[in-house]
Amino acid sequence: MLYGVSSVQAWYYFFKYHQDAWYIRTLVGAVWLFETVHQLLISHTVYYYVITHYNHPATLDRIVWSILLEVLFNGLIGMLVQGFLAMRVWRLSGHNVLLTITVGALVLSCFGCSAAFTVQSLKLHTWAELEQLKGLSMAVNLLGALTDVLIAAALFVFLHRSRTGFKKSDTMISKLIAFTVSTGLLTSICAVASLISILASGHTLIYVAFYFTLGRLYSNSVLATLNARTIIRRIGENSDELSFSLQTISKTAQRNPTSARSTNISIKIDTMQDFMRDQHPNIGSENAEPESAATERSF
């Protein structure tokens, strides 16, 4: 079901946002491709145990290669999505090198543990032997949860600092905050549930259900974030200030709140002038200024 949701969201993205930058389109294409491979591997695993070796209980003790490769592709999806969010942290933090390096190190460490688990597990033959890699399994889930929490917390702080004091722009930022926190919290809960399952019942495969669901949540979260831009942008177009820089406003507000408000008004005036020129090319700057002045008085 979650793969179907991801496929629909990917189709909608390429249909609606085909003019996006090439690296964002590549990200979406890679995430959906890895999702598809992951789903094929799951289907092979189920077919192997349920169809091919139906009524052969002894087969249940052996590990099929496809379920082990699923860990690698799950890690690839997580690395792409968390890396994309790390770039958002980089931009919203005003290019905070220390914070971005910390997030990047956690992302790479989590993927490294997933790759190491895959390589080591392919040498094993039975589920009983797989318990030897319990430490790696715990490390993957722990690092994934820490990364999600750190990214969500960083985005929350920087978005919160970007509030302008204008009702509708603050509403837009509030929606971004709620969206960011909810997606980060959901993946964190899933990773923690997988970790708890390993600790409480490591001899079973309960944790596998949570871990493989985690990849689906990652892909759906990034696709939903990208596809929600139209709605969020529509809120901005109807707001008191049509465009602003989150980084500039947050820094200005910390130094001088009055100056930050003045910056928003000047941005409003420039936006209105551009709008007037786009809509009425024959109208000169002399006609545009009274409209801008009227806008300024509305505040």
Results as ranks from 00 to 15, higher is better:
residue 153 A to F: 15
residue 89 V to S: 03
residue 50 V to T: 12
residue 265 I to S: 05
residue 47 Y to A: 12
residue 75 G to R: 07
residue 27 L to P: 01
residue 57 P to W: 02
residue 271 T to D: 15
residue 181 V to C: 07
residue 151 I to T: 11
residue 207 Y to V: 03
residue 6 S to A: 14
residue 2 L to I: 02
residue 86 A to N: 12
residue 33 L to S: 12
residue 211 Y to K: 11
residue 256 N to P: 00
residue 1 M to N: 13
residue 11 W to M: 08
residue 40 L to I: 11
residue 100 T to E: 04
residue 207 Y to D: 05
residue 183 T to G: 08
residue 198 I to Q: 09
residue 90 W to Q: 07
residue 105 A to G: 09
residue 140 V to D: 02
residue 278 D to T: 07
residue 202 G to T: 03
residue 252 T to P: 00
residue 195 L to N: 10
residue 85 L to H: 06
residue 147 T to H: 00
residue 229 R to H: 06
residue 149 V to T: 14
residue 209 A to T: 12
residue 215 G to T: 03
residue 188 S to E: 09
residue 179 F to P: 00
residue 153 A to C: 13
residue 50 V to Y: 15
residue 128 A to M: 06
residue 195 L to A: 11
residue 162 S to L: 00
residue 145 A to G: 06
residue 203 H to S: 09
residue 24 I to M: 04
residue 135 G to E: 07
residue 162 S to Y: 01
residue 16 K to Y: 04
residue 36 T to S: 12
residue 118 T to N: 02
residue 85 L to F: 15
residue 76 L to D: 06
residue 160 H to S: 14
residue 37 V to T: 04
residue 180 T to G: 04
residue 204 T to R: 06
residue 56 H to W: 08
residue 160 H to E: 03
residue 15 F to R: 12
residue 223 L to N: 02
residue 274 D to R: 14
residue 225 T to K: 04
residue 40 L to K: 07
residue 60 L to N: 06
residue 289 E to M: 14
residue 169 S to L: 08
residue 111 F to N: 12
residue 16 K to F: 03
residue 258 T to M: 09
residue 44 H to W: 14
residue 74 N to P: 00
residue 96 N to A: 08
residue 52 T to I: 11
residue 187 T to M: 12
residue 218 Y to T: 00
residue 208 V to R: 05
residue 215 G to D: 05
residue 50 V to I: 13
residue 287 N to G: 15
residue 27 L to F: 01
residue 203 H to Y: 03
